[in-house]
């Protein structure tokens, strides 16, 4: 932070002599203290999970959802300034609606990531705005079926040349993470927020690039990872929020929605067990070291 006081960090859209945009870097600082959010791309869908810190017990439990849906098949979870997150989601919904208006079909996840990346980037260009204090994980399931055009009411001739390709492969799971700079990458597993470091190392252990992990496994891993990432701020209570989107023949029928309560609780119980198991191991190790003294 040697740059503080040089004046190059006082306005957005200004480069410092060594080519940095400090306001964007400061915006990233806003993200670093937000609740941990992760997304996992599984072979048959995408899972999102969010660590929601309970700031007061006056807040209604289970309300104030932080994971949002865009169109039907896309989910967004943000870490950072929550009001910026709502703005971001609102824009994403407008983009999805305008795509439908033009193409009469749902927006592909990649196209939405691209448009939202551009939108966030635009907020680094002008001194009249500030960057988003936000990193968002955006993912969805693009339909594997041949979708009717919006408003289509008939199926057309069933015989004759239709110009349709047999066995064409389309759709699938997609996951992106967009940073305050507007930069985005595609991910197998993405993590942001306070506990991102430990979440990332847990995600890496899953070998997601192999593409073996199923959605159900993904839900359980996601819950566990949030619990692991929460270990560093153990003193604070949190709620686990989870959502998922599956293929058309999967549990959500291609829609992005909240993970059912029963499954979430099952995943949470498992996660707690794993965490406690680790703690027990630690205690056992300690116990072993002091064993001699205890006998006395």
């Amino acid at each position: 932070m040697t740059s503080i006081g040089t004046g190059y960090d006082l306005s957005n859209s200004v480069f410092s002599p060594d080519g940095r945009n400090f306001q964007v870097e400061y915006a990233m600082k806003a993200v670093e203290n937000g609740g941990t959010a992760i997304g996992i791309r599984c072979k048959d869908g995408v899972v999102f999970a969010m660590e929601k810190l309970v700031v007061s017990k006056l807040v209604k439990p289970g309300a104030n959802k932080k994971i949002s849906t865009v169109d039907k098949n896309i989910g967004i979870v943000c870490s950072g300034l929550m009001p910026d997150g709502r703005h971001f989601v609102s824009r994403a919904r407008d983009e999805a609606a305008s795509w439908r208006g033009l193409y009469k079909a749902p927006i592909p996840t990649s196209a939405l990531a691209n448009r939202m990346g551009s939108y966030v980037q635009a907020y680094t260009l002008y001194s009249s705005v500030r960057p988003f204090g936000l990193t968002s994980i955006l993912g969805g399931w693009d339909s594997e079926a041949e979708l009717p055009v919006d408003g289509q009411v008939g199926s057309g001739p069933k015989v004759g040349a239709g110009g349709k390709k047999e066995g064409q492969k389309r759709g699938g799971p997609f996951l992106y993470m967009i940073e305050p700079s507007g930069l985005y990458w595609g991910y197998y597993g993405a993590a942001t927020g306070k506990g991102r470091q430990s979440a990332k190392s847990e995600l890496e252990k899953l070998n997601l690039s192999e593409g073996d992990i199923t959605l159900e496994q993904g839900v359980k891993e996601a819950a566990r990872i949030i619990y692991v990432a929460h270990e560093d701020s153990k003193d604070k209570d949190f709620e686990l929020e989870m959502s998922w989107v599956s293929s058309l023949d999967g549990p959500t029928k291609g829609r992005h929605e909240e993970v059912p309560k029963a499954l979430r609780e099952e995943a949470e119980a498992l996660a707690k067990k794993v965490i406690e198991g680790e703690d027990d191991d630690d205690e056992e190790a300690e116990g072993g070291a002091t064993g001699d003294q205890m006998e006395e």
């Binding site: 849906t69 609606a97 439908r100 208006g101 919006d150 009411v153 549990p251 029928k253």
Partner: peptide
């Protein structure tokens, strides 16, 4: 009718944003 159908699709999406059910019913 197709135009109205698209209006209704967009309305239905917005309704789902405001009040997402968790039943998984299309």
């Amino acid at each position: 009718m197709q135009h109205l159908d698209r209006l209704l699709t967009s309305l239905s999406l917005r309704e789902n944003y405001a009040d997402p059910g968790s039943s998984g019913d299309e």
